[in-house]
């Protein structure tokens, strides 16, 4: 849904604040759940992530979520799945060369990042996704990484 996705980009700053505020407690809960129940709740958590992020960002469940670094805009919605955009085919009106009705994901990402405290993270280089993680939960992956290496 372009409409909700665009709303999320316009409110990238608020979403970032919400994420940064809630995530420490939520990740503690996830870590705890993960320790107690093992992998038994993975299916439910993955489903929850898919529903929530799908609604807000048209999330494609790449398994390596970068929303907080890309202006709360999911780069996997780019038809070329570019993780370091934009490409050279953006139309004059800022829409996608492949889907003329869709605003370019990376134009939106740059706009969203301007509204965020850590917006400069959009300038970091990102290597292509590990396709083996498609469909898996980024939340669980984060909860299961070493807390010292965890980058929210």
């Amino acid at each position: 849904m372009y409409v909700i996705r665009q709303w999320s980009t316009r409110h990238a700053g608020m979403l970032e604040t919400l994420y940064l505020g809630l995530s420490p407690a939520l990740f503690k809960l996830l870590v705890l759940l993960s320790q107690v129940t093992g992998e038994r709740l993975d299916g439910v958590i993955t489903w929850l992530e898919k529903i929530l992020k799908g609604l807000l960002f048209d999330c494609r469940m790449c398994g390596e979520c970068v929303l907080s670094s890309t202006g709360m805009t999911c780069p996997m919605n780019c038809p070329k799945q570019i993780r370091n955009g934009p490409c050279g085919g953006v139309r004059v009106d800022g829409c996608c060369e492949v889907k003329p009705q869709m605003p370019c994901v990376w134009v939106a990402a740059w706009e969203g990042s301007q509204r965020m405290r850590h917006g400069q993270r959009i300038e970091e280089l990102r290597f292509a996704v590990d396709r083996g993680r498609t469909g898996t939960s980024s939340w669980l992956a984060l909860a299961r990484t070493d807390p010292l290496e965890r980058k929210l």
Binding site: P79, K80, N84, E97, V98, L125, R126, A128, R131
Partner: peptide, 22 residues
């Protein structure tokens, strides 16, 4: 690369496993 939809084989599978920076 240009998307397959603009070329003469729009039926083809677009790969885009990497992007130009990767």
């Amino acid at each position: 690369g240009d998307d397959v939809s603009v070329g003469d084989h729009p039926q083809a599978m677009p790969v885009f496993d990497l992007d130009s920076i990767s």
